[in-house]
Design a protein around this nucleic acid. Structure first.
Lengths: 331, 331
DNA sequence: TTGAAAGCGCTAACAA
DNA sequence: TTGTTAGCGCTTTCAA
C-alpha cells in the first residue's frame, strides 16, 4: 500500500496537520520538525495523492485539449506546443480526440469536465445554439482554437478570410486567369463546424472579385477531387491555377499532375495552405500559406490559465495571429 | 456550484446511497425510485465528480503516456492509436512529453503516478539500474515501447536488429559495394536510452558481415552529417549506398544529393527507415523499412489494460511485431 | 428496498 | 508551534 500522510504522521510522532505543513512549505512549523518529516517522507517513499488533493482543493492543475486527430501534421505541432506551455505553467494535459465525430466530441468534453480539469482548449466539430448551451452548462473555462464558434467564446486563430483574399491577390498578380478551388466537403454531416474552410473560401472569392475576375472559380469540395480533375483538360494558354485549402490536398494534386505529365507551374499553377514541414522535400517547391501553429498553442494556454488563475482571459476575442505567403515555385 | 449526490438525495427525498444505486445501475432499488432519481439528475444537470470517485475506488480509469515529442511523425501516429484504443477500452489519456530530457522524464512519471493513473506507456530516454529501481518504486503498471529497458519490463516493439540485417541483405543483393550509415548520436548526453538506434546499427553490421563484406561502412552519427557528406566524392563505379536510420535523415540527404546534381539511385543509392506517410509525395520514391506504429500502440494499450484489470500483461515479453521493406526507386 | 455511517487521502480552520 | 477535526463527493457495508 501507498504511504499516506497519516502513516508519515504516525511514523514521526506528529499530527497530519504538521506533516502537511512540512510537505507543502506552509508556515508555522519548527525547522527541525520539518526536516524530520521531509526525511521520513523520502525514506518511506511518500507520494502525495493528487486525486485527494484535487477533491479538497476543487482544482486539478490539469487542462484538457480536444482535437480531431493527429494525422494532420499541424495538429501534432499544436499539441506539442500546448503540452510544453501547459507544463511550463504548472499544468498537465489530458488529451481527447474526437475523430471529427460530433457525439464523440460531447463525450470527450463530458469526461474532461467530470474529471474536473481546470480548463479546456477546444478545436470543435460542433456548432450552433444548442451546442453552445451545452457548453455553457459546464462551468469550466473554455477557449476555442481555429474553429470559431461565436462571440461568446474566447478564440485564438488567424485571419482565415484575409489570408485567402491575399492568396487570391497574389495568384492573380502572377497572371492566372482561370481558377479551381479544392477544399473538404463544406457540409460535413450537415452540422459540423467548418468555420476555417468557409472563411477561406469566402476570402478566395472576395479576392477574385476584388481583382475584377468575373468568371467564378470551379469549386471542388468533395473527397473525390482527383476523380473530378481527371475530367478536366488543362491548356497552357488558359493560365489555370489550382488552389487547395490544405497542403495535403495540394500534394495529392501535384502527384496527379505529375502522373499526367502536366508541368507545374508551366501548364497549371498550384497553391497549398499550411506550410507543413515536409514541403521542403517536395519538388517543385509548393507555394503555400504559413501560419504560426505553435504560437496559437502557446497563446491559447496562456490565456486559458490566466482565466483560471485571475478570472479573465488574456486574449482579446477579436485578435488573430499573423500568417504569411510562402513563395515557392508552383504558381 | 455543482450539484452533488447529496443535493440530488435531498431533492428526491432519499438517501445518498439510494442515489448512488440509481446512478450506477446497482441492484436493490425500486424501478420507480430509480426513474425519479435519474430524471432529477438530468433536470438538475448532475455531473459525477470523478476525482471523488477515484479517491474511493483507488482507480482513475486513466492511462498516461510518456513520449519524447510529437515532431516525429510516427510519434503522432502512435499517440493517435493509443488514444483511440484507450477510449475504446474505457480509459482516458494523460500525455506527457519529455523532450528527450532525462530529468524531465522523471518529473513526468512522478506526476502521472501521483495522479494515480492506472497504467503508464513509456517510451523512455532513461536507462540503467538506478532508473529501473526508480520505476519499481512506483507500483503503477508500466509497459515500455520502442526503447527496450530490460527483461524486467513489459515491452512492445519490433525486431530492430533483424530489420536492419534484412535491409543490409536487400541492399547487397542489389549490387552495392560501399556503405555509408547515418544515424543520430549514439551516446546522447552520455546516458540516454538509444536502444533502437544501437540495435539497428548492429543489425546493419551483421548484415554486411553475413554477406562477406569486409570493408567496414562509414558510420556518420552526428547531427552535421550533411557537412560530412560534402567531403565525400561519389563515384558511380563504386556502387555506394547511403543507409539512414530514419526517413527524415534520408530526405535531407536526398535534398543534398539533388543540390549536388547527383542522381539517385544511378550514382548513389539511398535507403530510409520508418516509411513516414509523406514519402508518397517525394521523388524518387524512397526505399525504406515499414513497421506498424499503430499496432504497437494498440498492443501496448491492450496489454496494459489487461494487466490493470486481470493482473497480468497480455503480451509476451519476447514478442515483437513484424516489419517490412518497402521497395521504392532509391536503391 | 432503503438509510445511516464510515472512510478514501488530503487541506484548512480553529483550538490548544 | 502543534494537534484536532470537519469535510471535499463519492462508494460501500451493515443495519433496518
Amino acid at each position: 500500500m501507498r504511504v499516506t500522510i497519516k502513516d508519515l504522521a504516525k511514523y514521526c510522532g506528529v499530527s497530519p496537520g504538521t506533516v502537511d505543513r512540512a510537505l507543502n512549505n506552509r508556515p508555522g512549523i519548527k525547522v527541525k520538525t520539518k526536516k524530520n518529516i521531509l526525511e521520513a517522507a523520502r525514506l518511506l517513499n511518500y507520494r502525495p495523492d493528487l486525486t485527494a488533493r484535487s477533491l479538497v482543493k476543487g482544482r486539478t492543475m490539469t487542462l484538457g485539449i480536444v482535437l480531431f486527430d493527429l494525422y494532420n501534421r499541424s495538429f501534432a505541432q499544436l499539441l506539442n506546443a500546448v503540452e510544453l506551455k501547459a507544463r511550463e505553467l504548472g499544468y498537465h494535459l489530458y488529451i481527447a480526440l474526437t475523430d471529427k465525430d460530433s457525439e464523440n466530441e460531447k463525450e470527450c468534453l463530458e469526461y474532461l469536465v467530470n474529471h474536473k480539469v481546470d480548463g479546456i482548449i477546444l478545436f470543435t466539430v460542433n456548432q450552433g445554439k444548442e451546442f453552445e448551451e451545452y457548453l455553457h452548462s459546464f462551468s469550466t473555462p473554455i477557449i476555442t482554437i481555429f474553429n470559431f464558434l461565436s462571440d461568446h467564446w474566447e478564440y485564438v486563430g488567424i485571419q482565415e478570410r484575409k489570408s485567402m483574399r491575399d492568396a487570391a491577390d497574389f495568384i492573380i498578380k502572377r497572371g492566372y486567369k482561370k481558377f479551381i478551388y479544392i477544399c473538404p466537403p463544406l457540409k460535413y454531416l450537415g452540422k459540423s463546424n467548418i468555420y476555417t474552410q468557409e472563411e477561406r473560401l469566402k476570402g478566395f472569392l472576395e479576392g477574385l472579385s476584388m481583382n475584377g475576375i468575373v468568371e467564378p472559380p470551379l469549386i471542388i469540395n468533395h473527397n473525390n477531387y482527383l476523380e473530378q480533375l481527371k475530367e478536366l483538360v488543362f491548356n497552357k494558354a488558359e493560365k489555370t491555377a489550382i488552389v487547395c485549402s490544405c497542403d495535403l490536398y495540394a500534394l495529392e494534386v501535384m502527384n496527379y499532375l505529375k502522373d499526367k505529365g502536366l508541368k507545374v507551374p508551366e501548364e497549371v499553377g498550384l497553391m497549398g495552405y499550411d506550410n507543413i514541414d515536409v514541403l521542403k522535400y517536395v519538388n517543385p517547391k509548393l507555394t503555400t500559406v504559413e501560419y504560426p501553429v505553435e504560437s496559437i498553442g502557446f497563446k491559447a494556454v496562456e490565456s486559458l490559465v490566466h482565466k483560471i488563475e485571475h478570472g479573465h482571459f488574456l486574449t482579446e476575442k477579436s485578435k488573430t495571429l499573423d500568417y504569411k505567403i510562402v513563395v515557392g515555385e508552383s504558381i
